[in-house]
């Protein structure tokens, strides 16, 4: 379909730079307007449960221990022990060396359908040789990761070496192959905060989709600017346009800085208004978050009991 665009370095550059520019003011205004929608009662209850089922419950700290990962898995399977009707999260997101622990803990807790996502490719900086990145990826896949969150080489992207980024994504995608024939899903992280412009976010989105990404993800959560409604909207539009132009359906994952149910619902409104029902499913939209789940549960408790809940009634992490 897009074979011409990726035929050579020049063709790829011409294609990416031929994408229409983003009207930054209009984009931010639209994202802000959609954020003012009032979602109440049954719609809110639906949105909260949908948001919980879309969470990639994440712990990416140097201080992660197997115990912490196991606790997180237990929480992902039964988010609210006082109310078993709360849905499970979509996935647990950990570093590669914790994948086996997470898989084991999820299975033990009755969460076979909860995926394990692993960051790889020298997350979060991505500053390592390709061979190291590929080994990192294979390692995580072999340990049982269902999803791989890779970071693009921002240095190469910003200096215009698009083909290098493209081929790297391709290579990682190949490294996601599993023996049973089903590939681990590949999420490609751009780190929007480092890409500087919305035009770059749009180019990176197309680049990743052309290279075979199953999901595109805003950021690592490790820099000052992470997911914002505006930069997520650019990616949602890119995903929409890619399918409209004959490409596959690609998922989107905003990550970092989404902490409240209100924020999460704003993102769901963006998805619904930009992409429609097709994407309102954990297979096609995810939240990368850790503290978000607590707030969603507090809001959920408020809806079921009528009383405002508090942080004493959800787990600390």
């Amino acid at each position: 379909m897009f074979a011409d665009a990726t035929a050579s370095d020049t063709a790829l550059r011409r294609f990416l730079h031929g994408l229409p520019g983003v009207d930054a003011v209009g984009l931010e205004a639209r994202a802000a307007t959609l954020g003012t929608r009032s979602i109440k009662t049954t719609a809110k209850a639906f949105a909260i449960d949908l948001a919980i089922s879309m969470i990639d419950l994440t712990t990416l700290e140097g201080a992660d221990t197997p115990g912490k990962v196991r606790a997180l898995c237990a929480k992902g399977v039964v988010p609210d022990p006082t109310d078993r009707t709360a849905p499970k999260v979509a996935a647990i997101c950990v570093y590669p060396d914790m994948v086996a622990t997470a898989r084991q803990a999820l299975d033990a807790a009755g969460g076979r359908d909860v995926h394990v996502a692993s960051v790889a490719t020298a997350f979060p900086a991505g500053r390592a040789a390709l061979s190291v990145k590929l080994a990192d990826t294979r390692d995580a896949v072999a340990a049982g990761a269902d999803e791989i969150d890779m970071v693009i080489d921002r240095g190469a992207f910003l200096s215009g070496r698009y083909m290098q980024v493209f081929e790297e994504i391709r290579a990682v995608k190949e490294a996601c192959a599993r023996e049973d024939g089903e590939d681990a899903h590949l999420k490609v992280i751009f780190e929007n905060g480092e890409l500087a412009t919305y035009d770059n976010v749009r180019r990176a989105s197309w680049l990743a989709m052309l290279a075979g990404a199953d999901f595109i993800k805003t950021s690592t959560g490790k820099v000052a600017v992470n997911a914002t409604p505006a930069n997520t909207l650019v990616m949602l539009e890119a995903v929409r346009d890619f399918r409209a132009a004959g490409g596959r359906q690609v998922g989107v994952k905003p990550a970092g800085g989404i902490r409240t149910a209100k924020d999460a619902i704003k993102y769901l409104v963006l998805v619904n208004e930009t992409l429609g029902d097709d994407w309102l499913h954990p297979d096609w939209f995810r939240f990368g978050a850790s503290s978000l789940l607590g707030d969603l549960l507090m809001q959920r408790q408020k809806l079921t009991t009528g009383r405002y809940s508090g942080p004493d009634y959800v787990t600390v992490d």
Partner: peptide, 9 residues
């Protein structure tokens, strides 16, 4: 009323 029922008060 909401303050009296609030679980975090």
């Amino acid at each position: 009323a909401p303050l009296a029922a609030h679980q975090d008060v």
